[in-house]
């Protein structure tokens, strides 16, 4: 079965190789995230003109929208990594899946918080049971469930496999929740506000948004590298390569 996996992926999947690779990648990712983040914030908060209808309030989208994208993107990464971990039992995939979850949960939380701030200014309420907001909330619960299940096991690898299974169940669940909440909203004729439905985004608003999206991606990579490195050290505590690193640090 292992012949299905490309050789380079297989090599990268070995903990010492990945540990070294992530260690080299991480400073670059942090630097790039900071640089892009500052440029995007400057572009979004200073250069971009105020919106015709929303004034300056719309500027929260430069945080809100990239966070929302990341919350879904990281869940997808977690789902794929979990699948790989369950099918091929690759330790690194377990680590990637489980260390993605807290980052994804944080982005989901930021999305909800900024969304509700924006909602207070636009709709006059902190919370509406809109399909997107509700799906995002359910996504947060899914993340928390995965994190909770992972930590409920004493054996971390077993916990990772169980929580990975839950993550895959969640991948199926999110679209169903979105669809059903939409149906529920039409039934109750509640507020069907589209966040960015009608308004076309002008070019000088779009580039900071896309730059911020890249910045969040870089941040995720940097954060994942750091977390995965720490986790690998803990998981492989008894192995020789970890001993060598520990001896090197002590010197």
């Amino acid at each position: 079965m292992s012949t299905w996996i490309p050789l380079w992926l297989h090599r990268l999947g070995s903990p010492p190789t990945f540990y070294a690779f992530a260690g080299r990648l991480r400073p670059w990712a942090i630097g790039l995230a900071l640089l892009l983040g500052i440029v995007a914030l400057y572009g979004g908060l200073v250069l971009a003109p105020p919106d015709r209808y929303q004034g300056d309030d719309y500027r929260i989208i430069f945080i809100h929208v990239p966070s929302a994208w990341m919350s879904l993107f990281i869940y997808a990464v977690m789902g794929v990594a979990s699948f790989v971990a369950l099918v091929w039992r690759i330790k690194l995939a377990e680590v990637v899946a489980m260390e993605s979850a807290p980052v994804g949960a944080a982005f989901t939380f930021i999305t909800l918080a900024t969304g509700s701030l924006w909602g207070e200014r636009m709709w006059g309420t902190w919370w509406t049971w809109d399909a997107r907001l509700t799906s995002e909330l359910v996504l947060l619960f899914l993340y928390l469930g995965v994190i909770g299940l992972y930590h409920a096991f004493e054996d971390r690898r077993q916990g990772a496999r169980a929580a990975g299974f839950l993550a895959i169940v969640g991948v199926v669940n999110v679209p169903i929740v979105h669809f059903s909440v939409k149906w529920w909203n039409t039934l109750h004729q509640g507020s069907t506000v589209n966040l960015f439905g009608q308004s076309h985004i002008a070019g000088d608003m779009l580039w900071p948004l896309l730059t911020m999206m890249l910045a969040t991606k870089c941040y995720y990579v940097a954060s994942l590298c750091g977390r995965a490195r720490a986790d690998l050290l803990a998981l492989e505590g008894g192995k020789d390569w970890v001993r060598r690193i520990a001896a090197g640090e002590a010197r």
């Binding site: 054996d155 971390r156 690898r157 998981l235 492989e236 505590g237 192995k239």
Partner: peptide
């Protein structure tokens, strides 16, 4: 050559 490791122990 059957071996078993629990959390690499």
């Amino acid at each position: 050559a059957l071996r078993f490791h629990r959390q690499d122990e």
